[in-house]
Amino acid sequence: MERSLDLLNALVALANFVIVPAVAYGSQLALGALGVTLIYGILRFSNFAHGDTMAFGAMATILVTWWLQSLGVSLGPLPTALLALPFGIAATALLLLATDRMVYRFYREQKAAPVILVIVSMGIMFIMNGLVRFIIGVDDQRFADGARFLITARDFRDMTGLQEGLAIKATTVLTVVVAVIVVAALFWFLNKTRTGKSMRAFSDNEDLALLSGINPERVVAITWIIVAGLATIAGTLYGLDKSFKPFTYFQLLLPIFAAAIVGGLGNPVGAIAGGFLIAFSEVTITYAWKKIAGYVLPAWEPDGLVQLLSTDYKFAVSFVILIIVLLFRPTGLFRGKSV
């Protein structure tokens, strides 16, 4: 009896500290990686400005949230930010369409090498980063409201009588639910609608798509709008779950790219799988397993925290996974493009 309770405690601790956070983080990464992979599939370059696009989208959403909050609008237990999301997406879409019109289109017409487009996206990154800092500053911004927890650790302990508690933040559930809805909608769009099919055709074979009368500018514009949606949602969810700080979005670039490449650049399913793979590896490798080890192997009393790598090295995890995949399977797990 005692033994099985220990194992149950270990399981709950595992869920609380590893599975739940990793699922939330994985959903955020997956949404980000989807944006990167779509741009790669349609526009054929790695968009270094994606992290800052997420920051911009989140910032626009936050500004509208604050405005709504000042009007006294609220969604009850849900965060007001959800109501502000469409406005944030619209603002980001406008910005992305404007950058496409003013910057990227020129290089597209010239058929510039992908690496030139990457450098161009670096310039856009500077501008967006500057814009975000200019408008909202560099500090932490909190904008979450509504219910904080679906279930707190204490409630869980009282309910089950276990030693370990399982806390589920409302934002975690929200992240997962929103991510599932967004991904379902995206796949429905890509697979079932005429526009979505034309996008996939364009991604598979540009010349053939042009011959069959697909309007490339329209495909590109729709891609930017979808990317704006994905980036804004990912950025806002990340900001709700943790907190909004412009600099962290730039740092998300590495895990997001790792997720997209590991899954196979240009492959949406791969982006989602890659996002979760990276998130789970990051969390499991940087988690201190001492507590769980204590339940599972009571006889073993480790000196340290039983942590494989300190949390500060979480970038190293996505990096190592990336390198392993690149070395052994350069097109990614799900066979993306390799142009």
Partner: peptide, 23 residues
Amino acid sequence: TALGLRSDYLAIATLGIAEIIIA
């Protein structure tokens, strides 16, 4: 490890190694 792959993979790899060095 990263040379010989496509140009943007080298970019991501170097971006990563820089963050790791700083960490």
